[in-house]
């Protein structure tokens, strides 16, 4: 088990490095370099900039070096000084721009994934046990709709319904008094009170697919021989379902937590923008439209890290659940 975890950990680190390379390439793809854009930016704000200054900045920032060196520089700055670069739009270091917002993103993702499992798994079990019942059909229809509705549409609908019928907007994450308050327990509670619309929007499609996976695997497992054996042994039906098929059906769910997280993270920038949540989503969109490359690159890096770490966690969880992996039987 420890060996397995170590191997997975190394894989994760390798993937993070590869990821940083990809992000670096994306940063480098647009025409022109950072110095040109920075100078252009300065000119626009009325400053006098000479050609020599461009060269100076370029040299200062090391942009005249070959790209492997630049990549190493960039990566080293991140690792050693936690320096992700400079945001042109905000005229601040990237870390300052992101600041607290990253915690909202993480909290939102974790709460969403937790809520979607808490709801979807029991419903999936119910759906499988009561196959072809009214409840099952209803859940199936809801599941399909949930998967077919893009997050932004759902967010818009929720906004529409809440403003039209309840007279309140569901946008934003805090009550006024906590808007700029420092972190505290009360602020956290307030956050939880406001977070649910975002959780619903972000979690529905994932919950829908979890429900369908759970139902399908339960139906599969329910008819396996070992379940019949347990029944023949005289194990009561309720206990039997919990101990055997549910246990087996949890595996594919757990092993895809990483991808589940990827789906949630994937939807979050747009949902956050539509619901105007103060997380990194809106600034990601802004940085993309403004070609604020260091900012957008960093956020892409953050999003990807979240899912890679998620995959690592789900691999470890799966290993803990599945004896065949736990005892090093199969890879």
């Amino acid at each position: 088990m420890a060996k397995y975890a170590l191997r997975r950990f190394i894989t994760m680190v390798v993937m993070l490095v590869a990821l940083s390379l990809i992000v670096f390439v994306i940063l480098e793809l647009p025409p022109g370099d950072f110095a040109e854009r920075y100078v252009h930016d300065l000119r626009q704000s009325g400053a006098q900039v000479t050609y020599g200054q461009v060269e100076y900045y370029r040299h200062m920032l090391g942009l005249d070096r070959p790209w492997p060196e630049r990549y190493l520089n960039w990566a080293t700055n991140i690792v050693t000084r936690f320096d992700f670069g400079w945001s042109l739009t905000y005229r601040l270091p990237v870390t300052k721009v992101i600041g607290d917002r990253i915690w909202f993103t993480i909290i939102l993702s974790v709460v969403t994934i937790g809520a979607s499992y808490l709801i979807a798994i029991p419903l999936g079990i119910y759906s499988a046990i009561k196959q072809y019942s009214t409840g099952d059909y209803l859940l199936t229809i809801l599941g399909y709709l949930g998967m077919a509705t893009p997050a932004f549409l759902f967010a818009l609908l929720l906004l529409y319904v809440s403003t039209m019928y309840f007279g309140t907007s569901v946008g934003g994450l805090y009550s006024l008094e906590f808007q700029n308050a420092p972190w505290s327990w009360n602020k956290f509670i307030d956050l939880m009170r406001h977070i649910w619309p975002a959780v619903i929007v972000l979690g529905t499609s994932g919950a829908a697919s979890t429900l369908r996976t759970m139902r399908a695997t339960m139906l599969d497992e329910k008819n396996q021989l070992y379940v019949t054996v347990a029944r023949a042994k005289g194990v009561p039906e309720n206990k039997l379902i919990q101990k055997y098929p549910v246990r087996a059906a949890l595996n594919p769910i757990v092993s895809t937590i990483g991808w589940e997280l990827a789906t949630i993270v994937s939807g979050s920038p747009i949902t956050a923008t539509v619901l105007s949540l103060p997380d990194i989503g809106p600034i990601f969109l802004k940085s993309l439209t403004n070609q604020d490359i260091y900012l957008s690159g960093t956020i892409l890096l953050i999003y990807s890290c979240l899912t890679i770490v998620g995959t690592f966690v789900s691999d470890i969880l799966l290993a803990m659940l599945d004896p065949r992996i736990r005892y090093g039987g199969i890879e």
Binding site: G267, P269, L288, S304
Partner: peptide, 19 residues
Amino acid sequence: FIRSIPTLPLWMSLAAILP
């Protein structure tokens, strides 16, 4: 590796750098 990068943000990043 590709699967572990969240699709939409990656699409967004790539779409954003189209001239």
